[in-house]
Amino acid sequence: MPVFHTKTIEGILEPVAQQVERLVILHEEAEDGNAMPDLERPVQAVSSAVTNLIKVGKETINSSEDAILKQDMPVALHRVENASKLLVEASSMLKADPYSGPARKKLIEGARGILQGTSALLLCFDESEVRKIIRECRKVLDYLAVAEVIETMEDLVQFVKDLSPCLTKLSRDVDAREKDLTHQFHREILVRCLEQVKTLAPILICSMKMLIQIMVKRGKGEAEAAANRNYVEQRMTDEINEIIRVLQLTTYDEDEWD
């Protein structure tokens, strides 16, 4: 059962999560505990890494235009910073008394805090990346909405020129996202929807071209051709809306998994 919803987050947090879990178990089993070694150097290494994260995090916040990231990321950074302070306190207490029970508790609390804060930060960043992909999806949806007012070949050529790069970017981004997800069910939906979008795109252009040709020649079947174009456009819209929905899913759904 995957705990982290992307392989990127899993790769960063899973090893440290296992280590912290092991420490908690050892702490519980050893009760009074052995004398703790001097942890000043490894705690200093964590503090330096946290200081760097705070710096990088603040730069990310300042350069981002994502209002939700600007609101959520400082909270996560604060959590990591507080946890780091707990580790420094624990290290200092253990130096004075290597058997100190409260120091051990503080050490575990600090390590857990680092894990939770880093997890919150990665989630916040990940959600922001997902919102970027969704913006690309919405761009395509906006172009699809224009399909119904295209009535000349010149406009159709321009429509294809505008739509193509957006579709390419959507396809590349969703494909990369799908590969990073740990939820097999969500991955399968994204693959299916993306394939549909890729298949339907040339069919849509073809249906638009046919309609324009009928309109120019004032031939029969204009209503049917328009209905066909609208049908293909609606199907593409539905597939992209489904992609948007699945991109936003992060929680593990046991029923779906089963």
Binding site: T8, I12, L13, P15, V16, Q19, V20, R22, L23, L26, H27, E29, A30, G33, N34, A35, M36, P37, L39, P42, V43, A45, V46, S48, A49, V50, N52, L53, V56, G57, E59, T60, V80, L87, L107, A111, I114, L115, T118, L121, L122, F125
Partner: peptide
């Protein structure tokens, strides 16, 4: 992304710290 790299560094440093802390406890269990 720099954020991911910074988080990787924290995870590695925290892992090393927790390993060092666990080593002493493990002797007792």
């Amino acid at each position: 992304e720099m954020i991911l790299e910074a988080c990787k560094s924290i995870a590695a440093a925290t892992s090393a710290l927790v390993k060092a802390a666990s080593a002493a406890q493990r002797e007792l269990v």
